[in-house]
Simulated scan of single mutants.
Amino acid sequence: MGIKSYQGPRAEFKNEYKAPILVEDYMTKSLITFHPNQSILEVMELLIRYRISGGPVVNDDGDLVGIISEADCMKEISESRYFNMPILDKRVSHFMSEEVETIGHDVSIFDAASKFNKSNRRRLPVMEHGKLVGQISRKDILAAALKLKAFSWRR
């Protein structure tokens, strides 16, 4: 029996994912950064003013040397109460976390979500060739997921 409606060879189906799915597509690029010699009081003021919960600490050369967060600032508040002293003008270097977990700019947001899920971090500095290029937060990952829901997640 012959084929009645043969239309020729079909075009090969390519399952390409066109949605932006990399950390660099959703990271914050204009960062509020802090310096190790900066006053912790000034950091607290900047956290309040810009409504952020922390940020990277960089040296004079722009190298990432730590990260400071609201929780780190809370240490100053609790220490001052414990010793019954006013909040002192201590430096960021005294309170910042020096062991900073980072993420590459070319990592997918799915891998970033997994990294956030396995740690208690709220933000990760984004690195490219050893240099700080941005920061991604848990909220950025959530926003990316909402934008991606319109695309097919199948590969």
Rank of each mutant, 00 (worst) to 15 (best):
I68M: 11
P125Y: 05
K14A: 12
V57H: 04
N117A: 15
I21Q: 07
G62M: 07
R155C: 09
M27Y: 10
I40D: 08
W153E: 13
R51G: 09
S137C: 03
A71N: 06
D140T: 05
G130A: 10
E70W: 04
L41E: 15
Q38R: 06
L64N: 01
R51A: 12
H94G: 00
M96H: 06
I32L: 14
L146D: 09
S78A: 11
N59G: 08
M44V: 06
E24C: 11
N117G: 15
F13S: 08
I68W: 04
N37V: 00
R51F: 03
Q38I: 00
T33A: 10
K149Q: 13
D72Y: 10
E99G: 02
Q135A: 12
E70Y: 01
H35R: 13
F110N: 05
Y26I: 10
P36I: 02
L148N: 07
D61R: 14
M1P: 06
H35Q: 12
S152V: 12
G8C: 09
K147M: 03
V92N: 06
L124K: 00
E128G: 00
G62N: 05
Q7A: 14
R138Q: 11
K4Y: 07
M127G: 01
T33P: 02
H129F: 06
L124G: 01
K90C: 09
K29Y: 04
I136T: 02
P56E: 05
K118S: 15
S5A: 12
L88Q: 15
L64Q: 00
D72C: 07
A150I: 11
D111S: 12
L47T: 00
F34R: 08
A11Q: 08
E128Q: 12
L124M: 15
R10W: 02
V23T: 05
F13W: 09
D25V: 05
A113D: 10
V23P: 03
I136N: 00
H35Y: 12
I32V: 15
D106F: 08
V126R: 00
P86I: 05
L88F: 04
Q7C: 06
F83I: 07
S137P: 05
I77E: 07
V133E: 11
E45D: 14
I77Y: 14
G66M: 08
P56H: 02
L132Y: 03
G62P: 06
M44D: 06
L124I: 01
A145G: 02
Q38G: 03
K131P: 02
T102F: 11
L64Y: 01
S53H: 12
F95P: 09
F110A: 10
K4M: 11
E24S: 12
I48A: 15
S114R: 09
E45W: 10
A143H: 15
E101S: 12
